[in-house]
Design a protein around this nucleic acid. Structure first.
Lengths: 363, 363
DNA sequence: GCAACATCCGTAAACGTTTTCAGAAGCGGG
DNA sequence: CCCGCTTCTGAAAACGTTTACGGATGTTGC
């Protein structure tokens, strides 16, 4: 039986490839087992075949160490079983949490994860969106730092399913998962208020990013809810990052706040460093709180109270939304006109640690 | 001109696909421009063509919003322009640093990065190695936590280029990039010695991992070099992780060490936490040092002295090695017999911060 | 022992590219 | 005006799969 396949060698080139050095293919197996490639495919995919055939094929496949070529399969059935996640910077613990969650969901569903760092440059984000058309991955999770009109256009004309992590202008027909920054900030401010703080300084990120803007707004609102007055002097904008946090806090400390709230764990840790450097005690003299509840929050001393904005949860949900879209082939009527976008919001959660214990003056 | 393509509609199905909802293909363009698909391909790839043809094709492509199908291209020319990086856990800052470096090199060379979390389970690592055969990516960077015989076998029979980050038994024909843990530990111990410490405790990771073993060995050797005696009581093995570090340090503190060295920043930070909890001052009463110089080292207070084992550097070199292999098609003679493996070692670097200032007793 | 039927198998087309190979067109020289 | 040359173009094969279709084979019932 093998004699036929191995001996005869009919047509030229394909045979050469099969016999030669390259990876074994379905064709090599067919030859070795003395059956047609269709039968090989069927056996390998568990479609019915006579036991004898199954046996021959499986034996041949095992002997050759056959592994199906995923590219060919992708071409045939129009899906790659790959997902793309594009975010600004994988160095940021928040995005790491997302990657982790997404990877885990994707893996469970049999998808591979393609990672793309945009370095927070808009053109790069647009390029990713555009490159969805090359069919390299079946869907995209995009985490933009800002949303421009160009983004909206690109999202509208995206040639595949996209889920955005972040806030989207209404009317854009794209699924999204957002954090509730405003409520998150409120949780922290309320907590600081309840532990006796009345002069709360705020080290915020850049004002022209979505998170920066939202958190600033939330801070104002939260103060009002607690009946505290908003003192613009106690608020400063800077880059996200420990050094920036330290520098910013340095300038704020002259104003004698009894709490410093960072829009970010990095900023909060920077503030903590500035406090330590001045010999101020945390939390006795000044309380410190951050946001994101990243791995950094537990690294410092004292451990940092932080608001978990649900990075992991957002990553998980985004991946699930995307997978759902992939399972539902398409709204039949319009090509991509009206996919009825779904939006979900991950609830924030306050994680209290030692950095916001009672104030010395409050006992 | 367009009339011919748009109006005539000769053959059946392919035309349907082109006219229908799907993505535009080279065929749609050919029809619209009234030329053959070969010409389209040539124009799009910048191979010579008559100006008139170029113009027609480019116009049609632009009008249709054509994006080449990467899968089809991959199938044709046998490469995907994707790299895979497999590591135990993306939650660990060390691997984040590697991902970042690899991603950056890959991106610059026009490769996409496929991420794979193995959760440190060996079967998963083997599966990744095996799945190299599916041609999903052109090469693999593997960062295993342990190397078993099965690993060695799988590496030998890998069906594509692999670079291992970590130490490999000699004789395995695979490129690798390693850290010099022994010298790294020595740097830290010597530094502690020079700042006056004589009773140095060591919180190590699991003994049965490669890093754990190497670092333990290095510690012993380093003590000897400094003329200190090795006291097994001052060494403890535990899991990598802050909590573990705190617990382990807790038990060591009764032995009154004047320094605690963590095999990891997490372990060192855990130790720092235990010290703070006991009211001991860092570095006056006890010095603390860690390894990896991850982002965590700068997060705590006081900032942590740490040995940079070159995660970023290792990631970068691994990616470069892999890309070189990809550029050099194959050693002509043997199929994959003797690829003359290349090994490089990233030098460690001591980063001194406040956690190892002079001892109080030493001034 | 034969008809009817179910089962299994092989041929060939298709997925969207790139590339080889001839043939067609253009062009200059005689 | 025709020949030879160069440049450009189109038909077709190939990459490795999956799958529709019809023909071959095997089984059952009479």
């Amino acid at each position: 039986m093998t004699a036929k396949g191995a001996g005869a060698v009919p047509k030229g080139t394909t045979q050469a490839a099969a016999t030669g050095g390259g990876q074994p293919t379905i064709i090599s197996i067919a030859e070795r087992a003395g059956v047609s490639i269709a039968s090989v495919s069927r056996v390998l995919n568990g479609i019915g075949a006579r036991p004898a055939t199954v046996d021959k094929v499986e034996r041949a496949a095992a002997e050759l160490g056959y592994v199906p070529n995923a590219v060919a399969r992708s071409l045939k059935d129009g899906r790659t079983r790959q997902l793309t996640f594009a975010m600004p910077d994988i160095g940021n613990p928040v995005y790491v949490a997302m990657v982790r969650a997404i990877q885990s969901v994707a893996k469970a569903a049999g998808y591979r994860l393609l990672l793309h760092s945009t370095d927070a440059v808009a053109e790069d984000e647009l390029a990713v969106l555009h490159s969805l058309g090359d069919r390299t991955s079946d869907g995209l999770i995009l985490c933009p730092i800002r949303i421009t009109d160009a983004h909206v256009d690109a999202l509208r004309s995206a040639s595949g399913p996209v889920v955005v992590i972040g806030s989207l202008p209404s009317g854009v027909p794209v699924d999204s998962v957002r954090a509730d920054s405003v409520e998150g900030v409120a949780l922290a401010v309320r907590h600081l208020y309840e532990t006796g703080r009345r002069r709360i300084a705020f080290v915020n990120g850049p004002a022209d990013t979505v998170p920066g803007h939202k958190r600033g707004e939330g801070f104002r609102k939260a103060l009002a809810d607690c009946g505290l007055v908003y003192d613009p002097e106690l608020v400063v904008h800077t880059d996200f990052g420990i050094e920036s946090g330290a520098a910013a806090a340095e300038s704020l400390l002259d104003l004698k706040p009894d709490a410093v709230f960072g829009a970010n764990d990095q900023l909060a840790l920077g503030a903590a460093r500035a406090l330590h450097a001045r010999g101020l005690r945390i939390p006795e003299d000044v309380a410190v709180a951050g946001m994101d509840d990243s791995v950094l929050a537990q690294a410092g001393w004292p451990p940092l109270t932080s608001v978990d904005l649900g990075s992991t949860e957002r990553g998980r949900r985004a991946a699930e939304l995307l997978l759902q879209r992939l399972d539902t082939p398409e709204a039949p009527g319009s090509t991509s006109e009206n996919p009825t976008p779904r939006t979900t919001t991950a609830p924030p959660r306050l994680v209290v640690r030692a950095s916001t214990g009672r104030a010395a003056s409050d006992s």
